[in-house]
Structures are given as structure tokens and as C-alpha cells.
Design a binder for these strands. Structure first.
Lengths: 200, 200
DNA sequence: TTGACAAGCGACCTTTCGTTCACTATAATA
DNA sequence: TATTATAGTGAACGAAAGGTCGCTTGTCAA
């Protein structure tokens, strides 16, 4: 128990920043949660702001490797039911993975103070989702699964309500089960409205 | 210039809190922006937290009188084009009214720290919007303007993408014009998809 | 005219913050 | 074995935070 202190500091910083914000968190509390004394932190980071920057670096890198490269994107579903299932798997993951939940909260809190947080928030909350689903819907249109239309518009129409429900879940984690049901209900509504007749 | 200092403090607090958060704002700066000295603030509020509470009271009251009572709700559009127009008027207002923009930012920042902020954020960002549009879509279905379906689901499908675009505009105010275009494009897409054929 | 009060000022207090530094214990290295 | 780098400690520091207090001034009612 020694070498991973730097990463434990980052993990605890994510936890506390995502609850009380960067300015609302102090180093005493942060290090105390790790059984350390505040001065020990400076063996691993030059300053409080250095923690913040390292945390953002980490979040940006994670986002890039997870959603940035084409090979890590989810496969195009081969049916409307497949779209629903894929959606539920993704949402279930993103709603229950503590680290991702905290990342969203942190970005929501700091997006108006820090330029990089603003940019990453934009991706997380809107543009990244639509960019991810646009080619999926385009491909599903090509395969006759979904009515021909502007795939980017469909991506917005599909991801924004789901994203809003995920945010609701971040606010009220106790409603997770109910929110998941609403996500599935919406997803089924969507395929009912946009699905090509006869597509399974 | 004297009696309205209390309200000027609240206005400046909203401005600063919505940019740097409650914890990131200090009273010196806040009062200096008003040409005052920090001790003068305590003639109007008992503490920094009292400012925060008064601000929340004000935001909650404003929301209640603006969206809470039935008579202040927008009238049901009598055509699909009317829905688009009504939407654009509302979005244009909510995106350009400085006070409302700052309120959204503030709620985004403080929603995970303060219980009342969390509740109000839930209304602003999701539940309030759907509750507002659910009866509108129900009425438009009764009048044969929109395909019969679950009005609450349609309200989610309609308001969430628009809300997401408004948030995007809060993040990048420079994109306001472009975002407004996307809102209109989405609104027209929506009426194309859900509008009853032949409805003007 | 005078007394009371509201509003603002500047000095001061206490606490907390981020940060530094001298020091120690431990574990790996030469 | 001697040495050196690493990780942690605790005391201390300066700056900045929120908050208090006594004083002054202007306004207005009695």
C-alpha cells in the first residue's frame, strides 16, 4: 500500500469534486479520506489544481479511447429489438458505473468554469451521443430497418431523451429502476415510430 | 440608489454563482462588483448562505408562478405550424433571457450539493417540460392534429432534444443562432413524424 | 429640531485554505 | 553495508475566507 497513492488521490478527488465541486473540496478532507495528512498529497501532486488537471486528462483520455475510435463503437444492431437491447445494455452500464456517474456529475458542475470541462461536457451530454448514433441509424436505414430520414436528426431524437433520463437518474439514484423502465419504454416507442414496417 | 441593494446583491450573486459556483464565489468580490465593501452585505443578509437561500427562494417562486399555475401555460396550438412557432418563441426567450440562462447554469452547478437545487433542476431540465407539454399533446391529439399515442411519451420525445440543445447553447453562447436553427429543424422533423396527415 | 434608524465604511477577528519545509522511516540500490 | 530515493509526518506560514463591531452619515418621522 504505497505506490498507488497517486491514483487513490485521483479517485477520491473525483468522488469529492463530483459531489461538492472543485472549489468546495479541500485537501484536508480529501487526504483524510485516504488515511493521510494533507501535506502528503504534495508528494504526488504539485498543487490542488494539478489534481484537477490530471483528473481532466484522465477523463478526456478515457472518453477518447472509449468513444473516440471507431473500433470500440457498438456494432450496428441487426434488428429493431437489437437496438432496444443494445440501448439498455449501454444505459444500464452508464447509469451503474460509479466512475462514469461521477464523471458526468463533475462535468455538470464544472462545465462553466473550465474550458476543457465545457468541451468534454458537450461531448458527453449531446454531440458525442449523436455522433455515435448517426452512423448506426444510417446503417439501419440502408438495411431497411428504419425509415429513411436524416440519420443525424434521428440520433438527436433518440439520444437526447435517453440522456435526459440518465441525468435524472444521476440526480435521484433511488429512481434508477423506474428510470430504466422509462428508457426502455421510450426506446420501444422510438422503434415503433421510426421502424420500417415488417422489420423484426 | 439605496433601497434596492438587497435585490442588486441577489442579482450579482446569481451572476457569480452561475459562473463559479457558490463555493467559488466570495463576498468581497460580490460586493465590490456593486461598489460596496463586504461588511455592507451583512446589513442585508445574515450570511453568505442566507444569500444562497434567498436566491433559491426567488428561483423557486419564479418557477412556480411561471410554470406552476395552469393559466400561465401556453395555449394549445391550433396547427402543427403553430406548435413550431410556439416552440421557437419559448426557446428564443429561454435562451436569450440572461436571468433564466444563469438560473439553469446555477442549477446545473449546485444540483448535487443542495437538495432544493436538485429538485428545481429536475423540474427545469426534464419533468417540468414534459408536464407542460403532455396536456398540450393530449389536446392536439383530441383535435386530430397529432397521431394518437401516449402524450407523455411524446412530451419526452419532443422536449428532451430541445432541452439538450438549450443546454448546448448555455455552454457555447456563440452558437446561439445555429442552435436555434437546429431547434426549428427538430421541431419540424417532429411534426412531420407525429403530425396527422392533412393537418396544416 | 431632534431622535431613531437604515445603510455603508474600515478595522479587526477567527478560521480555514493551500502550500512549504525540515524531518523520519522504509525499501531498494550501489 | 552505505546510500539514496520514496512516501509519509507534523509544525508552521501567508493569504484569503466569512463574519463582527464601532463609527459615520443621510433620511425621515415625531
Amino acid at each position: 500500500m504505497a505506490k498507488d497513492t497517486k491514483e487513490r488521490i485521483l479517485a477520491t478527488a473525483l468522488e469529492m469534486f463530483s459531489q461538492k465541486g472543485y472549489a468546495g473540496t479541500n485537501i484536508r478532507e480529501l487526504t483524510a479520506a485516504l488515511g493521510l495528512v494533507k501535506s502528503s498529497m504534495y508528494k504526488h501532486f504539485d498543487s490542488k489544481e494539478a489534481i484537477w488537471n490530471a483528473l481532466l486528462d484522465q477523463m478526456i483520455a478515457y472518453y477518447g479511447q472509449r468513444f473516440g475510435s471507431a473500433e470500440n463503437l457498438p456494432p450496428v444492431p441487426d434488428s429493431l429489438e437489437g437496438l432496444v437491447r443494445m440501448t439498455m445494455v449501454m444505459v444500464d452500464f452508464t447509469v451503474h458505473d460509479e466512475k462514469i456517474v461521477m464523471t458526468r456529475k463533475l462535468l455538470a458542475i464544472e462545465q462553466f468554469r473550465d474550458e476543457r470541462a465545457r468541451a468534454l461536457a458537450g461531448k458527453h451530454f449531446l454531440t458525442g451521443l449523436t455522433q455515435m448514433f448517426t452512423p448506426i441509424f444510417a446503417a439501419m436505414m440502408d438495411r431497411g430497418l428504419i425509415r429513411r430520414d436524416d440519420p443525424e436528426m434521428l440520433a438527436l431524437a433518440y439520444t437526447a431523451p435517453i440522456s435526459a433520463l440518465i441525468h435524472q437518474c444521476d440526480r435521484e439514484p433511488g429512481q434508477a429502476a423506474e428510470v430504466m423502465q422509462r428508457v426502455e419504454a421510450f426506446s420501444r416507442h422510438f422503434v415503433k415510430v421510426y421502424g420500417e414496417e415488417g422489420a423484426s
